[in-house]
Each structure stands twice: as structure tokens, then as C-alpha cells.
Computed example of a mutant assay.
Amino acid sequence: MTGQIIYSVKGESDELKAAVASAQATFKFFWRELSWEARRIVKSLDMAAVKMSFVLDADDPDIPAVENMWVTDIEFDGESISGVLMNEPRWFTSLKASDPVTLPLAALNDWMYVRGGHVYGGFTVDALRSGMSTEERDAHDRAWGLDFGKAGSVEVVPAEEGQTPRLLSRNLDRAQDRQTLAALERSEHPMALNMRDKVEEGLRQHPEVIREPDAGGWLLLHREVLAGNHTVVRALLRHGADPLTSNCNGQTSLALARAAGWPRIVDLLEGKDTDYQGPVESGGFPVWPIGLALIAAALAWLYYLVIEPVRAAAAGLSNHIPGPINYAAALLILGFGLAGMGPWYYRLRLRTPKAGSSRVLDLVAMIGVMGLGLVLHDYLGSYLISHR
């Protein structure tokens, strides 16, 4: 996530502050994992939680300005994190364990999920462990009963089977860290690849899930964009999801993708994904042959409307040109044919706002074609009159 404020405690070490910044920068990987955990019938995670900074309003100098506490049962809407408090507060007396809480994303202090006893995330935990002696660190890990890995490095996603774990430095300040993060941002969650066919089948059978917002006012497209699920986002777009529709917070899919930091999805929504071929065709028949036939029919009609009267005038024969609606209709058919020859028009269309049930580009194209038809008719009429 980008541009987040960090709530810090007076006297907090620079190491802990840097760890908080790293946790905020990589929170999207935590949320992507939780998006797939919610789909699993048999749960894979032993635990998933975030550490949040609760600001205290106290005059007592012995009480810190911020109390950091772990929260589980996480929900995220792109702006705020909600969940249930895991531990009893020490200073924040208005809360108790198991209370529901909601805080802005800027209050995120750390995140962590556990699979098979192994910890992913935990940047501030690593900062604390790195400052311990070997004996203290071992005691700490035994108390948690978890494998935190080597002190000084953090994993944010599990390694693929048979692959070396992709380790990051806690401060994310190495060139290798930047390369690893860039690769992870453009990678897919394994479940997204495994469920590709099921997702397509589900959208075909239940198209209503594409257009109907959930109880929170979000489309499925918004949820999948925020979670960074590129494969699902592509499938939704292919089945007609509208990327320009805003959620209840006024955020479009593109705004969510940029805020979360998913460059591959940003490319897709901006029409820069060269592998994306636009929406699926109804009936499974490719559109380009129809487009080609429309182009041929329009050109033949325009030949009759334009070339034949000009040839007749050149030969000194009397002629009569059809009404302007014929020229507009021929140009309109030509436009439909060109739009059907590839995804270029669809990609351009997605980048224009909606006007009622249509796109601005559609309206501009229709008006432009009608105007061009009138101009062509009038110009041809003037030409023929001058050559009589």
C-alpha cells in the first residue's frame, strides 16, 4: 500500500519504525492470502492477524501515546481494517479482548499469518527478535510455538513447491528486495491459477454476481482488484464487469489497483495488457468475420453512394443521390465492422465514463458518424451540381 502515515511511539527505535513501514508496504500480500483463505472449504492458515496502533488520549506521562494490539478476523475495505481484538489492553481501558474494532489502514503496525507453524510477515516481530540474544530468541519462539525463520529476514508469501523461499530484508532497502517485490506483485496466487476454469464456469452460470453489488456496496470486481487477483479480474472483465463503476467509497477499480499497488492489474485496466482480448463473445463465434463482412458491405454501399454518382456526372449523365441518412448508415456499418476487428475499440471505450447506460465514446462516435454522413452528402451534392 502506498502513502501511509505511521503511528509511532515516543522513543520507538528507528528499526521498529522501518519495520512498520515495511509491514504497510507489503500488507497487500496478506490481504491477497486472506481473500483465498475465505474461499477454502478446508482452511489452510493456522492464524492470521494484524497489529494495530491504538492512539491513547492520556495526560499521564507514564502512559504511552500509542498501544499496539493484535486483531484477528480481519476485514478490509481499502481504507479501514476491521476485526476482533485478540488480547486484553494494558492501557486502552475502553476496550477488552474480543471487542470489534475498526481503524484506518494508516494505523497498521504489522501483519502476520501462519501456515504449518511457519510465520509469514511479522516485520516488527523480526525487529524485536533481531535485538535478542540467541537464548532469548529461542525462548521467544518456544513461547509462541512458531517458526519465525532466520532473524533479519522476512517471508511474505510461501515459496512454490520445490522452490527456494523468497526472503526479504526487514527494511526492504536492498536492490534484491525491490526485484523480489516487483516479481511478487506481478505473480499470481497458486489458487488463482488452479481455479481459473472454475471461475470462468461460475461466471457463465451466475452472471448476476458480476453486476450486483454486495452488502457493502462493492462489486466483485472491486474485491478482486483490491486483493490483487489478476486472473479473476481478467475473467470478470471478459464477462462484462464494468471497471468504471465506483464502490461505496467512490473508488473505481483502477483507483483501487493503484492504491493497493498491483501494477499488473493497473496495466490490464488501462488497456496495456497485450494478452487481454476484450469481453467474451456470446455463442462462442469469433467476431472478426462479422466485422470483416460489415466492412465489405459498407464499402460496397459507399461505392454505390459516392463513386457511381461521380462517374455518372463525369460521363455527363443525369443522376440523383440518395438522402443523407443513407450515408450516415453506411458509415455507421463501417464503424461497427472496424470495432469488430479487434479489442482496440473496447479498450478505448473502457477509458471513457458512462452516460446513462452507454459510454461517452459510443455517443461521440454515433454523433460523429451522423455528422460525417451529413457532410459527405452535402459535399457530394455540391460537387455534382457544379459539374452538371
Score class of each variant (00 low, 15 high):
A241R: 01
V369H: 02
L221W: 01
T180A: 09
S13V: 08
H118Y: 04
L384I: 07
L103A: 06
R223Y: 00
A314M: 05
V55R: 13
T245M: 11
I295N: 04
D378Q: 15
A227C: 02
D46Y: 02
K96S: 11
D173G: 11
M69Q: 12
Y346P: 00
A159N: 03
N171I: 03
A49E: 14
I325H: 10
A127S: 10
H206K: 14
E270I: 00
P309I: 00
L305E: 04
V280D: 10
L332T: 08
R264A: 10
A175Q: 14
L226N: 06
S169T: 15
E188V: 05
M132F: 03
V125Q: 07
R211S: 14
L16A: 14
G228E: 04
I325G: 12
K198S: 13
G337M: 01
L85P: 03
P343W: 05
D59V: 07
R234C: 03
K51W: 08
F29I: 05
I265M: 03
I5S: 09
L237F: 02
G335V: 12
G323I: 04
V266M: 13
V154K: 01
I265W: 02
L361W: 13
L302V: 10
I321L: 09
L237I: 06
R204C: 08
S13N: 07
L95T: 04
R90Q: 10
A192C: 01
R347Q: 12
G228A: 14
V360S: 15
R351M: 06
D126Y: 00
M132Y: 05
E185H: 03
S386N: 12
A107W: 09
G291S: 06
Y120W: 10
D173R: 13
L95M: 14
A315L: 11
V369A: 02
G371H: 11
L254K: 10
R234I: 00
I6H: 08
A259H: 04
Q179G: 15
T352M: 06
M112K: 12
V114I: 12
G373Y: 01
E160R: 15
A241S: 15
V154F: 08
A297T: 10
Y113C: 00
K10S: 11
D57N: 14
A107Y: 02
R115M: 08
N229L: 06
R211Q: 10
N194I: 07
A227I: 00
F148E: 01
Q24N: 15
R264H: 14
R311D: 14
